[in-house]
Design a protein around this nucleic acid. Structure first.
Lengths: 190, 190
DNA sequence: TTCTAGATTAGACAGGTGTCCAGTCAGGTG
DNA sequence: CACCTGACTGGACACCTGTCTAATCTAGAA
């Protein structure tokens, strides 16, 4: 029902939750967004559907959780910026994110839909994910960044994510196009 | 099943299709996105569920169709631009669209989710709607517009639509914020 | 070892979705 | 007028969703 159960999950619960998420990621890779159901994920994780539902409130919740994990895993591997101008640093951020998404297109596409969902677990994760994007752009822009520029970058990036999620472009193309878009936004705004 | 039936719908079909769309709009306004089902819309339109499904393949299809209609209805009422600089003209475009969306927030929110759907009817409408946005920005920018600027505007607008659709801001706020965003994008790009 | 809290289970449940089909009805044609 | 085509009907279908419950495991405490 409500995310990973409240307050200090014990070892057994953590283990079950991890198995479910791992199974979800595999299932997504193997059968795709449409065919995946919580029940098939539960089956793959060797757990009953009822149990799965105590950890995951919905397919949307699963996708959102996997997406956030993918994002933060990639962030952890992030190395320092090797560019000195803001434009290049921001381009590096978008490149890294799109490259990372390109490795799991089914996840990215699934999450794009999932994050529009209305249940509370999705809502919570959506805010975390949004904050993650903003934070990266903020760091890349440097401390004295114009907040409107920051917002513009975030909106353009969300828009690109949306278009890629709808299949209008691949995540790789998205990376390429965003280079030019970032340049346009930062031109005349330091 | 597949949109408004192929090839020259006759008067009776057109009438039924219109009644369904009108009923869909009312239902959406009265009970909201969640509670609406094709069957309740059919009931309101005084038509059987089976009939409704010959005109509308899904809830998503209904929302997409209503959204496109709303959009083009507003475009028809569009008056000439009263500004001479590109920035003001583009701001006028975003203002008009957000104002129009603000009158039907349930529709806008519903469509945001719906347009991510995968059925062919939605796909078709999604492309029309996307093209509609691009066209308006293109006209506002003038003939010799930089295509990257056009793409940036479109992405930022889609992103804003997404955020409003998720409830992170109202459509009215969206209009206000986009003024600043548009200014940032066009600064240094004519 | 026994006890016990809490994690897990099978399976039923009430809803929704989109499809299908055999039968009805209505309006334009002859 | 009778006819025929095609729009429409009602109801059943298979499947998915998220919830619930009573029963059963299982690991750590006593």
């Amino acid at each position: 029902m409500s995310s990973i159960p409240r307050r200090e999950p014990n070892a057994r619960q953590t283990e079950t939750a991890e198995r479910l998420l791992a199974a979800g990621a595999e299932e997504l890779r193997e059968v795709g967004v449409e065919a995946l159901t919580i029940r098939t994920v539960a089956l793959r994780a060797g757990v009953s559907a009822a149990t799965a539902y105590t950890y995951l409130s919905s397919k949307n919740h699963l996708f959102a959780e996997l997406f956030l994990r993918h994002l933060t895993a990639e962030a952890a591997a992030d190395t320092a910026y090797d560019a000195t101008d803001a434009t290049s640093r921001v381009q590096q951020v978008t490149r890294r994110m799109t490259t990372s998404l390109a490795t799991e297109p089914a996840l990215a596409a699934g999450a794009t839909q999932a994050l529009l969902g209305t249940d509370p677990d999705v809502e919570r994760l959506r805010l975390r994910i949004g904050a993650e994007f903003v934070e990266r752009f903020k760091v890349a822009l440097g401390e004295k960044a114009d907040p409107v520029v920051l917002e513009t970058l975030t909106l353009a990036f969300s828009g690109a994510l949306l278009q890629a999620g709808m299949g209008l472009m691949t995540y790789t193309e998205m990376g390429e196009r965003l280079d030019a878009v970032v340049a346009v936004i930062l031109k005349g705004n330091q």
